[in-house]
Design a protein around this nucleic acid. Sequence first.
DNA 1: GTGGTCTAGACCACC
DNA 2: GTGGTCTAGACCACA
Lengths: 118, 118, 118, 118
Amino acid sequence: MEFQEKKAIYLQIADYVAEQILLNKWLPQQKIPSIREFAVDIAVNANTVIRAYTYLQEQKIIDMRRGIGYFVLDCAVENIKRLKKQIFFQIELPALFKSMHLLNIHFSEIEKIYKEAK
Amino acid sequence: MEFQEKKAIYLQIADYVAEQILLNKWLPQQKIPSIREFAVDIAVNANTVIRAYTYLQEQKIIDMRRGIGYFVLDCAVENIKRLKKQIFFQIELPALFKSMHLLNIHFSEIEKIYKEAK
Amino acid sequence: MEFQEKKAIYLQIADYVAEQILLNKWLPQQKIPSIREFAVDIAVNANTVIRAYTYLQEQKIIDMRRGIGYFVLDCAVENIKRLKKQIFFQIELPALFKSMHLLNIHFSEIEKIYKEAK
Amino acid sequence: MEFQEKKAIYLQIADYVAEQILLNKWLPQQKIPSIREFAVDIAVNANTVIRAYTYLQEQKIIDMRRGIGYFVLDCAVENIKRLKKQIFFQIELPALFKSMHLLNIHFSEIEKIYKEAK
DNA sequence: GTGGTCTAGACCACC
DNA sequence: GTGGTCTAGACCACA
């Protein structure tokens, strides 16, 4: 796992966890890696993983069971999608359209790239 | 001018300047606001504006003339677009397509929103 | 450590760091002094050390690891030498030859001083 | 006339004047350009030329005659050479030898370049 | 007036 | 503990 400079590491970890869940690699009710295990895996301080897990807990995506570990909530996928859709439609997409306008990029260009990538 | 929490203020200032130039509000060869004047205007410390201007100078977007001020370079628009296009096609667009895939959003939806916004 | 009047302190600090590396006193992969520790050592403000380290980072001479410190890059010596050689052959040496010409100093004089110093 | 970023403009002007004198383009007892005329010529503020002339006056290289102008002193060449030799042998040459040592450049290389240039 | 450098010190994020 | 950002203010050089 590699981290970007300009985004908080704990948020990048949270994103990674959310992605695993969305991709159905980590399923509801399943235990996710322990803080210490995960910290060693991705070569990061345990406190940073704690922050990521705490953030995901606040967003109702994972759940903590004392002495046992963290678990994917049943409503995790739903809440991740809600969050991500909110970010997507309210932040990412408007930013993209603004960039397109500033750079004078036509929608057809985007469409072409999208179809090529697909 | 309002600043976001999660991005360094000096970078937001640099973005603002670049935007003014792209929108042809500040033209090549023209003087941009002096450091201290601008700092007062947007209610930040002069050092923060200095960092923004220094960054833009490194990017060959503005130019400094001792004792006179900062000026928009002839190649400013070109350099801003080069930078922004690089970010757009190499970072923003791939991230967007990844989000669309994860959220199972079809391209037609994006197209619809784009046309409505237009 | 003593500073000259006519050169920015942060650049003199950067030069000092580069010199330690060239002299193999600070080796690749090794941690260099923390910003605040170094600032106290050489009796300057921490921000001044930050500027020096940021400059060296831009020149690909040192590397930052969040919360850990700055480290000498593997390619540090190479990059320092590249930079210094460029300055030496394109700026210092032509200036020296020009001075010699103006002052009517013969090359044999330089040679003599060089051999005596050696 | 073009100015470097990293050296005070008034010193670059003083260097230029000294060079003209050393090259016998401006001779002892002759009037050098008036402050205002020179300032216009090289597109610099008159105050900056005043500083340069004042500095040269302190170094006994030029002389001011009220209402008439600045003149090259008889001892100008001598004083310039004294100054320059001092700088050359006490500052430039030691710095060059230090650079050579750090970069592991042999004297023969310098000699070769010198002879080629000559 | 312009810009540049430096200081002292606060606050935040990450290890 | 590490580094990064920002502030307020002093001082200097150049136009």
